[in-house]
Computed example of a mutant assay.
Amino acid sequence: MNLGLTDKVALITGGSKGIGFQTALDLSAEGAHVAIVARSEEHLQKAKDEIKEKTGREVLTISADVSQESECKRAVDEAVAHFGKLHILVNNAGTAAAKAFEDVDGEAWQNDLDLKLGGTIHCSRYAIPHMKEQGGGAIVNLAAVVAKTPPASSLPSSVSRSAGLALTQAMSKDLGKHNIRVNAVCIGLIRSDQIEKMWQNNRPDLTWDEFSHETGKGIPLGRIGDTQEASNVITFLVSDAASYVTGTSVNIDGGSGNAL
């Protein structure tokens, strides 16, 4: 299947590691021009080198903190200045934050909202005019399955991510007339640095597959997901193959979610 991504320009926040990195790698392999945003110059350079090694393509690295509006604008401006256009935005930046309500102070609430919700809002605001110039575009917002049915001790992330789902649907209604599609993916338990540390610290006696299946016993598919499996869905959603898909969310959770 031709995904129609050749020479498209994509900006990915949180693009130096995990799902963001894998998505950058896959979009590059499909012929897209990719800019990745993260705070760490070291992690950005490592990601850039690996993508070049695996795909032969250069990526633009932008060191920025997308919890700040001015940094979101700068990231978009740098990507457009370098490539001359912008078609795709993947709002992936975020951190794990899960505590009981009474354990989350005001600063933690604000930091989480600024990064996960504010970063998505501001990066999208500055990207959309450039997408309009190209006759359309695609935005994918990263969320989590807990955004749909928040359990206990899932704050502040579940609230930030729930707001992101509302934002996704509202944006899709406003932007459809400009041929800009906006969708979300709701992530479940996916292999990440945090999960890797849990494996190494708690069960170094197990292989990754053994740890994955043990930890994923409560998941219908019986294992932890891989970043490639998340990237596959994101890549589809930003591609021409999903040209009639907007305003929806897709669970990437091995069936663990309690809502469609």
Rank of each mutant, 00 (worst) to 15 (best):
P156H: 08
A79M: 10
K8I: 13
S249I: 05
A32R: 12
F21I: 00
I12Y: 05
T248L: 07
N251Q: 04
V37W: 07
C123R: 13
K8P: 05
A29P: 06
D205F: 06
S40I: 12
Y126W: 09
A152T: 08
N111V: 09
V37K: 01
P204T: 01
A147L: 10
V66C: 08
A241S: 11
I195C: 04
N92L: 03
L5E: 08
A64R: 12
E42M: 14
I180S: 07
P150H: 13
K8F: 12
S256N: 11
H130R: 15
R39M: 14
C123K: 11
H82S: 10
C123M: 15
Y126M: 09
L117N: 12
D112Q: 14
L115A: 09
K217D: 00
K85H: 04
I51M: 07
A127L: 08
E69W: 05
K173E: 10
E42K: 15
I219K: 04
Q169I: 10
S249H: 13
I180E: 03
W199P: 06
A170Q: 04
E102M: 03
I195F: 01
L206F: 02
N111P: 02
D174M: 05
V66Y: 01
A32N: 08
W208A: 01
I128S: 14
Q110W: 08
H33N: 15
A170N: 07
N202I: 06
N2M: 10
A47W: 11
K177H: 07
L113Q: 09
G119W: 01
T235V: 15
D205V: 00
R39Q: 15
I128H: 13
